Simulated scan of single mutants.
Amino acid sequence: MQQRIVFVEDDRDLAELIGDYLRSYGLDVTHIDRGDTAVEAILADPPDLVMLDIMLPGKDGLTVCRELRPKYAGPIVMLTSLNSDMNQILGFELGASDYVLKTTPPSVLLARLRAHLRQQTTQAPAAVMQTTTGTHDARAVLDFGSLQIDSINRSVHYAGESISLSTADFDLLWLLACHAGKVLSREDLLFSLRGVHYDGLDRSIDVAVSRLRKKLGDDPAEPKRIKTIRHKGYLFAGDAWRNDPVA
């Protein structure tokens, strides 16, 4: 089945150029040229991926991303000419899955889009864990005492409460949790989640980990659940959740 992308871009010539390129590689691309019509159109017929410019008439792309994310579970890729750290950080904070410059070669853009589309259908490693309700396939549920992560419903519960996460943040948490007790480098995380290599400057993983810690009650000054391993990466400490006083 052909995977479908909605491309929100006010430059019609650029949208046609990129759309034709992606179509030549088997993707179905729909073009929307205004921000103020994008959210309603996307939610009416959700695509597999949304590609979103920032500078749009009617409503800017960051606002579209913010309004779309709570209701749309697929990847949102910001494709923009605005090369600033603040815009990148803000995009990720609002739920963007990736931030790509328009100067990126089309072949690299295609590779990154395919990585996000693959991530949507990638199954987590097979394993079996014991939960409070019996034996569950870990491809469906991971249970760490005070924290439960359900990959089928893409839901997270901590201390008995539902935690709202963006698609990108859920994917990061799931990847860390599937490798509990193992240090994952930024290179590991970026390549697994977005199909790109760590350039030594990208802070999106750090920002996302900080967001997860805040939502899951992990002290950012002295994290004990999602630990920073200096010069190496991040470690999800499974036992720390089981020993949580709220468990």
Rank of each mutant, 00 (worst) to 15 (best):
Q123R: 07
Y99V: 00
A127E: 13
L49R: 02
V108R: 14
D53L: 05
T122Q: 14
S84A: 08
T104Q: 07
A96T: 09
R69L: 01
T104K: 02
D53K: 06
V100I: 15
V77P: 12
F92W: 09
V100C: 05
L56V: 09
I54M: 04
E67T: 02
G61R: 04
Y99R: 04
P125T: 03
M55I: 11
A127T: 08
D98H: 03
A73L: 06
P106E: 10
N87P: 03
G58I: 10
D53C: 02
C65R: 03
T103Y: 02
Q120W: 00
L82D: 05
K102H: 05
M78L: 15
Q123F: 01
K71H: 14
V100Y: 04
R118Q: 12
A127K: 10
P125Q: 02
D98S: 00
L109A: 02
K102T: 04
L101A: 03
A126N: 11
R118F: 06
E93W: 03
F92D: 08
R114Y: 12
A126L: 13
L62P: 11
I89W: 05
Q88A: 09
L62C: 10
G61T: 05
T121G: 00
S81T: 10
L113N: 00
Q123H: 05
T121F: 02
R118W: 06
E67C: 05
G95E: 08
Y72S: 06
V128P: 05
R69S: 12
I54L: 13
L117K: 07
V64Q: 08
L79Q: 04
Q120Y: 00
K102P: 06
S81N: 14
F92G: 04
A127C: 15
E67W: 11
Q88W: 01
A111H: 11
K59T: 09
M51S: 05
L117V: 11
R118M: 12
Q123C: 04
S81L: 08
L56F: 08
K71Q: 13
L52Q: 09
G74W: 07
L109W: 10
L94A: 09
Y99Q: 02
P106V: 01
S107Y: 08
G58N: 13
L109Q: 09
M51E: 07
P105L: 03
L113E: 07
N83D: 15
D60F: 06
S84E: 15
L62T: 09
M86G: 00
G95H: 06
D60R: 07
N83I: 00
T80S: 10
A111K: 11
E67R: 09
G58K: 10
D98N: 08
M86T: 11
P47Q: 06
L113S: 04
L101E: 08
T122D: 11
P125V: 03
R118C: 00
A126C: 04
E93H: 14
Q119S: 10
Q123I: 01
V64Y: 14
K102I: 03
K102L: 06
M51Q: 07
T103E: 11
S107N: 13
A126S: 12
L52V: 12
G91L: 03
V64N: 12
C65F: 06
I54V: 14
L90E: 15
H116G: 01
Q119K: 11
T63D: 15
L79H: 15
S84I: 01
N83F: 00
N83P: 03
G95L: 10
T103C: 00
Q119W: 02
M86A: 11
P70Y: 02
P105K: 12
P47W: 08
P70E: 10
Q88T: 05
T104D: 05
L90R: 14
T80Y: 09
G58Q: 13
A127H: 14
Q123S: 07
